[in-house]
């Protein structure tokens, strides 16, 4: 049964709204039940760990505790890569040491066992059941569109916690997004850092990090970049035009969430997945692809 506790994270209603819209569309289509954790709080994401260890652990731990109590027995699906990294780090820390657990319980005032598995949305859709459901729901194909799957740095690192074997070149997003009919190019910046929140506080220093991601995607033949994280998506989508202006480049690479491509393949309209909300124009590339490819039937 495709049923998970769901931790959306703070960005889902704001910068990550297109991600949310496409996730909701896709969940309806494939019968994926995402049970939102009641009264969830911010996980601390990219800033709490810079303030202090216990703050960084206690913030996500409270969400784990609520999920345990209110949604017992369900694994937790986390679509945002930064949230995923924090919830996973807290889970690992609690499981590893009773002392840590006791300290966290003291801070949060609730008991926590961290028994649930923390999964990205890719993990959920990559299960046999999730994958089969997605495959069955596809109505049309985006054949001919060459995409570079960009995982960001946080879904695979650190290896000690994620247990991911192929840190440099994971393959799961390719497997899932290929269901939409796109062609995934082989490129080398799948898990490079996009600069994270430094795109806000030090954009000039962080800009080259995003630029080289575009550069490598283009050099390896990609027409679009696909992400699986609201932060990665924002950093790429928001900065592309600025990079072209300030660095004298001419990238024309729209950035999609992998769920947007799946939703479109499952019949969603542009508005239903929020294509009009992108910073860098994203509609035309999909529209043209769809016209050329036609519907599946």
């Amino acid at each position: 049964m495709l049923r998970y506790a769901y931790y959306p994270g703070c960005s889902m209603d704001t910068t990550g709204v297109t991600y949310r819209m496409s996730i909701e569309y896709l969940a309806r289509k494939i019968g994926l039940e995402l049970m939102e954790i009641p009264d969830w709080n911010c996980c601390g994401a990219s800033s709490a760990h810079a303030k202090g260890k216990w703050q960084a652990l206690a913030l996500p731990a409270r969400n784990l505790a609520i999920a345990e109590k209110r949604l017992p027995g369900l694994d937790i699906c986390v679509p945002c890569a930064a949230c995923y990294a924090r919830l996973l780090a807290a889970t690992a820390a609690i499981r590893e040491s009773d002392e840590t657990r006791a300290r966290i319980e003291e801070i949060t005032g609730v008991t926590v066992k961290a028994g649930a598995e923390i999964l990205t949305l890719m993990d959920v859709l990559g299960t046999d059941e999730g994958f089969a459901a997605c495959a069955a729901a596809v109505e049309r194909k985006l054949t001919g569109l060459k995409v570079a799957c960009y995982y960001g740095c946080l879904t695979s690192r650190p290896r000690a916690i994620t247990g991911v074997q192929n840190i440099e070149s994971p393959e799961l997003m390719e497997k899932i997004v290929s269901l939409s009919g796109v062609e995934c190019v082989d490129w080398d910046f799948k898990t490079e850092c996009c600069g994270g929140s430094h795109q806000v506080d030090a954009p000039a220093a962080a800009r080259p990090l995003v630029e080289r991601i575009f550069r490598n995607a283009k050099a390896n033949g990609a027409q679009a970049i696909v992400t699986a994280c609201p932060m990665c998506h924002l950093n790429l989508d928001m900065r592309e035009e600025e990079i072209n202006r300030k660095m004298g480049t001419a990238y024309d690479i729209p950035v999609y969430q992998f769920t947007q491509l799946l939703a479109v393949a499952m019949g969603a309209s542009a508005k239903e997945v929020g294509l009009q909300k992108h910073f860098y124009p994203a509609f035309k590339r999909l529209d043209r692809t769809l016209r050329k490819a036609g519907t599946l039937q």
């Binding site: 490129w187 080398d188 050099a219």
Partner: peptide, 15 residues
């Protein structure tokens, strides 16, 4: 031969 002191962090392909 040009000697550069440092390790190679990554090898990737472009064009």
């Amino acid at each position: 031969a040009r000697y550069v002191r440092g390790r190679v962090a990554k090898i990737f392909r472009e064009n």
